[in-house]
Write a protein that binds this DNA or RNA. Structure first.
Length: 487
RNA sequence: GUCCCCUUCGUCUAGAGGCCUAGGACUCCAGGUUUUCAUCCUGGCAACAGGGGUUCGACUCCCCUAGGGGACGCCA
């Protein structure tokens, strides 16, 4: 049987470099053995999923040149490849589980569940559903349903024993059943949770090997149980290590740029990024470090995968990107540079801003330098302001950085709104509040409009610049603690 | 708190019981090439988490401890 792997991103934000990492390994594993690589969109979270995000993920994976054989855009024999279009399938399977006694209706409110968890945690017990609705009679269930009470479907879990499964890199793993929660399978809105959808789809789409992040090991028993209930064979499992921040925590946008678009925008070559990602947990048999994707594919083998969580090291990525750039011949170099810098599509949003401010084309470079390339390095005295104290400058930057970290949608209106709110809280005019931000983002007091600039630069670059500004000002731990308590 | 995973230079890693005086790469340092800088070349600093076993022999196998990470959502 032919090998089939998949990448199953959730379109809930920026295309994440972790998705690229998993896609690369899934792609390499399948393709190295003549198999297929499937792209499936896991958009079962109605509140957070967006078409825009899906489009960006597809574009990002295309940019990295990780082509999929089946997917929402190109179809295939196992479609649809978007989970929101498969809800009937999940409902039918959930019903089957109920009919066979493997699942049950639960009417507990989110509020009750939250209190329950808080109590369990306080008591030091394993946190999980307490089984209140476990033994509702059929009559009780239908009475509640006709009364219009919202409900979910939960899976039943054996209350003793342990769940065993095999990880191709770690061998046999066992997790006590007491640790497995009675997971919600179907939400009140009729959409499946990840756990139901992933099992049903992986089976129906003929996935033979699941390469995913280590963070999933603990929920594997839920999946194993479901595969068993349905009487389906479990795909082979490969849990890859997680990419880490320098402090070894899971890579996060709060501490590092994580959007694939960031890497494109600041001028990394896609082949350099995939090359670098291939080095995370994998090594060539001859220890070569600079190689094209085709050779990675050729050499790929699970027994060359290591398990320690690799720290994402921009220094080494920069070196590697330099190697790839210098490896280009002059023509290719010019083409690639042109695609990056003088890209019509990329520059389009800038045109209306620059045109009105230009008398000679020579004026342009100085206006956009901080948008096309890096902003100049900052020091403390760049932030001296005629009205604002140093403390106020720091606070304005901190508030903005914090709000930006939490921002779901990187849009001008949202940015303006968050600045207005924070300026008001500090009792400052918007103009004064924005002054340090201009410095942080552009490196100067007078620049193109701030929110246009931030929108153009994107979330990751903007966040990095705000963090760097705070670093330049040298915020003490004491001050940081005070700032973190601010409303 | 409960459970699970992981552990070789600061970082990415090689290492499948003797090839190990532990190798390579990034960073850093020193020298060389270069009108400057960068590239490039040469050299250097730097690690088997600790403790017990098993074995003639342990970086490699087992156990314990420690450290790190992850999971515990009607998120994925």
């Amino acid at each position: 049987m032919s090998i089939r792997t998949r990448i199953a991103p959730s379109p809930t934000g920026d295309p994440h470099v972790g998705t690229a990492y998993m896609a690369l390994f899934n792609w390499a594993f399948a393709k190295s053995q003549g198999g297929e690589f499937v792209l499936r969109i896991e958009d079962t979270d109605q509140a957070r999923s967006s078409e825009a995000s899906e489009a960006r993920i597809l574009a990002a994976l295309s940019w990295l040149d990780l082509p999929w054989d089946e997917g929402p855009d190109i179809g295939g024999p196992h479609g649809p490849y978007r989970q929101s279009e498969r809800t009937a399938i999940y409902r039918q399977h959930a019903q089957q589980l109920i009919d066979q006694g493997h699942a049950f209706r639960c009417f507990c409110t989110p509020e009750r569940l939250a209190t329950m968890r808080a109590e369990q945690r306080a008591a030091g017990a394993p946190v999980g559903y307490d089984g209140r609705c476990l033994n509702l009679s059929a009559a009780e269930v239908s009475a509640k349903q006709t009364a219009g009470e919202p409900s979910v479907v939960r899976m039943r879990v054996p209350d003793s024993g342990e769940c065993r499964f095999r990880d191709e890199l770690r061998g046999e793993l066992a997790i006590p059943c007491s640790q497995i929660d009675m997971q919600v399978l179907l939400k009140a809105d009729g959409f499946p949770t990840y756990h139901l959808a992933v099992v049903v789809d992986d089976h129906l789409m003929g996935i033979t090997h699941i390469l995913r992040g280590e963070e999933w090991i603990n929920s594997t028993p839920k999946h194993k149980l479901l595969f068993d209930c349905f009487g389906w064979p479990m795909p082979a499992l490969v849990h890859l290590p997680l990419l880490r921040n320098p402090d070894r925590s899971k890579l996060s946008k709060r501490r590092n740029p994580t959007s694939i678009d960031y890497f494109r925008d600041v001028g990394y070559l896609p082949e350099a990024l995939t090359n670098y990602l291939a080095l995370m947990g994998f090594s060539m048999p001859d220890e070569r470090e600079i190689f094209p994707k085709a050779e990675f594919l050729q050499a790929f083998s699970l027994d060359r995968v290591s398990l320690g969580g690799p720290i994402f090291d921009f220094e080494k990525l920069n070196w590697l990107n330099g190697q790839h750039i210098r490896g280009l011949d002059a023509d290719a170099f010019m083409d690639r540079l042109g695609d990056w810098a003088l890209n019509r599509q990329r520059l389009a949003p800038l045109a209306p801003l620059i045109q009105t401010r230009t008398e000679r084309f020579a004026d342009i470079a100085a206006q956009v330098d901080y948008l096309i390339g890096d902003r100049r390095p900052l020091s403390e005295h760049d932030f001296t302001h005629r009205k604002l104290s140093r403390e106020q400058v720091v606070e304005a930057l901190f508030r903005t950085a914090r709000a930006c970290d939490a921002l779901a949608q990187w849009r001008q209106e949202e940015l303006l709104a968050l600045c207005k709110v924070n300026a008001e809280r500090m009792g400052l005019s918007l103009r004064d509040f924005l002054a340090p931000l201009f410095i942080a983002i552009s490196g100067r007091a007078v620049a193109l409009p701030l929110f246009d600039s931030m929108a153009f630069l994107g979330a990751d670059v903007s966040r990095v610049r705000l963090r760097e500004a705070l670093d330049a000002l040298g915020v003490s731990n004491k001050q940081r603690k005070r700032l973190e308590k601010l409303a």
